[in-house]
């Protein structure tokens, strides 16, 4: 792990000084703001649209904070996960492509340290994005609905963060395997939909796989019961394996 702290410090400065600071937190902030607003406005808009059709009456119950949280959770599980995939698809390959990896890896910086420092810095960005989005969703929900239970929101966002971290770990592996950022992103998205399809049709693993965290996250946002312990453990296990495989692949890779 020689050079880990020096390279991590560089990574964090890079996050601060480049676009990387703004992309994921920016998207999370956008989702955190728009989700409660959409939850508040959508029923009114649909009802008004219905009134323009003679004889059609559409009535919705008054929206609540649950609708705002559910909207936020859905957006995290769809848009935000795809954003994470795209933003991290070149985590390693972009350094190799730009030639910066050659300059640092010919110094006493081990490849494992290089790989893990990039994962840790991106994990911190993801954590920051989750916090920013969650705070925005909490604030707007409280303002628009007068009620915003913090614990439900934190649990839902926490479970989502664990699933997003797993996505990041898998993307880190793919960004070592694939030299092209687009290639890694394409495989990552295909993998995401493939996993969702398999888990939804294979009930034996539905409750145990990391993908079950998305369901646990939605249930937590709604204030319903959730099963998260085994999915969290399997997420840590699969994420750890992905990181180990990524570090091993980078050790073997010719640059």
């Amino acid at each position: 792990m020689r050079g880990f702290s020096v390279f991590l410090k560089k990574e964090l400065r890079e996050v601060r000084k480049t676009w990387r600071l703004w992309v994921l937190p920016g998207i999370a902030l956008f989702l955190g703001i728009t989700s409660p607003v959409l939850a508040k406005l959508t029923p009114m808009l649909v009802e008004q649209a219905g009134q323009s059709q003679p004889g059609v009456v559409i009535e919705f119950p008054d929206p609540t904070y649950v609708d705002a949280y559910t909207q936020f959770g859905s957006q995290l599980n769809q848009l935000m996960i795809i954003a994470v995939i795209i933003a991290t698809a070149g985590l390693i390959s972009s350094e190799i492509r730009r030639g910066t990896a050659i300059l640092v890896l010919t110094k006493p910086l081990s490849r494992v340290a290089f790989f893990l420092a990039k994962v840790v810095s991106q994990t911190l960005v993801l954590l920051g994005a989750t916090v920013v989005g969650t705070l925005a969703a909490f604030s707007l929900t409280a303002i628009l609905f007068g009620q915003a239970p913090l614990l439900d929101l934190l649990l839902g966002a926490g479970f989502w963060f664990a699933f997003a971290w797993l996505t990041l770990a898998i993307m880190a592996l793919l960004s070592v395997v694939f030299n092209s950022q687009g290639g890694a992103a394409g495989v990552g998205i295909a993998l995401l939909f493939g996993v969702i399809l398999v888990v939804s049709t294979w009930s034996a693993i539905e409750d145990y796989s990391p993908a079950a965290l998305t369901m646990a996250s939605m249930n937590a946002f709604r204030g319903e019961e959730y099963q998260a312990v085994i999915p969290l453990l399997s997420t840590i296990l699969v994420g750890g394996l992905a990181l180990a495989a990524g570090a091993w692949a980078l050790q073997r890779k010719e640059i």
Binding site: E14, K17, G99, T100, A101, L103
Partner: peptide
């Protein structure tokens, strides 16, 4: 060792 590749890549920031 000190090493300079043919096209050195730096962090532009």
């Amino acid at each position: 060792l000190g090493f300079l590749p043919d096209v050195p890549g730096f962090y532009p920031w």
